[in-house]
Nucleic acid binder design. Sequence first.
DNA 1: GTGGTCTAGACCACT
DNA 2: GTGGTCTAGACCACG
Lengths: 123, 123, 123, 123
Amino acid sequence: MQVIQFKFDNERPIYLQLVEQLRVAIVSGAYAAGSRLPSVRELAVMAKVNPNTMQKALTELESDRLIFTERTNGKFVTNDQRLLDKIKTELASDLVQKYTSDMAKIGITYADSIKYLKQLGGQ
Amino acid sequence: MQVIQFKFDNERPIYLQLVEQLRVAIVSGAYAAGSRLPSVRELAVMAKVNPNTMQKALTELESDRLIFTERTNGKFVTNDQRLLDKIKTELASDLVQKYTSDMAKIGITYADSIKYLKQLGGQ
Amino acid sequence: MQVIQFKFDNERPIYLQLVEQLRVAIVSGAYAAGSRLPSVRELAVMAKVNPNTMQKALTELESDRLIFTERTNGKFVTNDQRLLDKIKTELASDLVQKYTSDMAKIGITYADSIKYLKQLGGQ
Amino acid sequence: MQVIQFKFDNERPIYLQLVEQLRVAIVSGAYAAGSRLPSVRELAVMAKVNPNTMQKALTELESDRLIFTERTNGKFVTNDQRLLDKIKTELASDLVQKYTSDMAKIGITYADSIKYLKQLGGQ
DNA sequence: GTGGTCTAGACCACT
DNA sequence: GTGGTCTAGACCACG
């Protein structure tokens, strides 16, 4: 069973942070396409949250079709690779936005933010 | 007087978060090189923190030479453009680290993180 | 032997629900006019109810003349086609009432409920 | 405050039945477009369910955009008349399906189900 | 064992 | 007062 380290801040609802972190785990392949997730109760223990809170997060992911449920059997990561790629691109887009936005805040243009990435990232 | 929006989370000491946000304000030019900062009390009001907390943050910035104090006259942003550039580069480096690290978490390589930046940032 | 799927809710007496579902089976021709019904015990097994409960339902149908008993031989569906048609019309009337009533609940007039039936039913 | 009579069976989750009945109330205009709904707590009292259960139902309706929330002010029916019409047509379609399906069960064709509606509905 | 539902009760931020 | 979140604990169906 793939164990994940969950971390939370007190700013936003825990269940939303669970959604985000689970989404990353799925998109990154830590929970592979088609594989069975740990049970709701196990995930709740890992994250040190109430099972209901974890359930709420998983319901969100299911409404996005990222996971699906087999009754009495467990929850599984989708097999829809196109969906996984789509979500991955969305997450990447969010990170790019955050990066360019934060760079802009310290007065670095988009063009320069590319230069910095090429220079500093090579360390 | 240049007004800044301060925001905090409850995870880390407030004064450290003040240091970070003031550093960004200085490096970005919101508080220009050589200009006079608002008074400690004014800054404390802006940030809705105790003046002592703001004082501690400013002391921290002063020990980095980012600001200096003129007795009875106030605190000023450094005129040392090389220092400002150095700090700016450090901050940029942190953001690059964060960006590549987050991209890696969702399974995107350094090389691809450059491609994404070029593609998505151009939107 | 014609097998029927019985389904119950816990709101109303089981025997009444049996009556309804058997009446439908007869009127629809699933149990044809003049044909022999499965034995009470067989019907009870199908419906997963106590034979006494099934017996009570059949007595009800018999008082409506929809079925009749041949001593030692079993129970048979009536041959009275006019009666079958009458019951069928009654059931149809109930369904019409339910349909128009439900449509009214969502704010659709009788006239419009006809239009909807013509439009949507043609799908 | 518009009071609604809620009724439940034990077959399906209460929150889903709440969703259905609230949807009908909205589409029918019992809760008019743009109007404020009773508070979650009031609705919970009306339906004799736990506030959390009502909250869950309302969350479903909100994800369908049928209602929206104004923080600290309450929940409101959407103003999107096109959406309301769309949902209304969906509900009508379901009722048509149910009607024709039930009529078919008692051996009445689609064409005859129209005749019955015209004859019997005129009562 | 699995997921799903429901209740009771608490606490929060916001106005 | 409003909606929203979270926990604890219980019970259910399913296999």
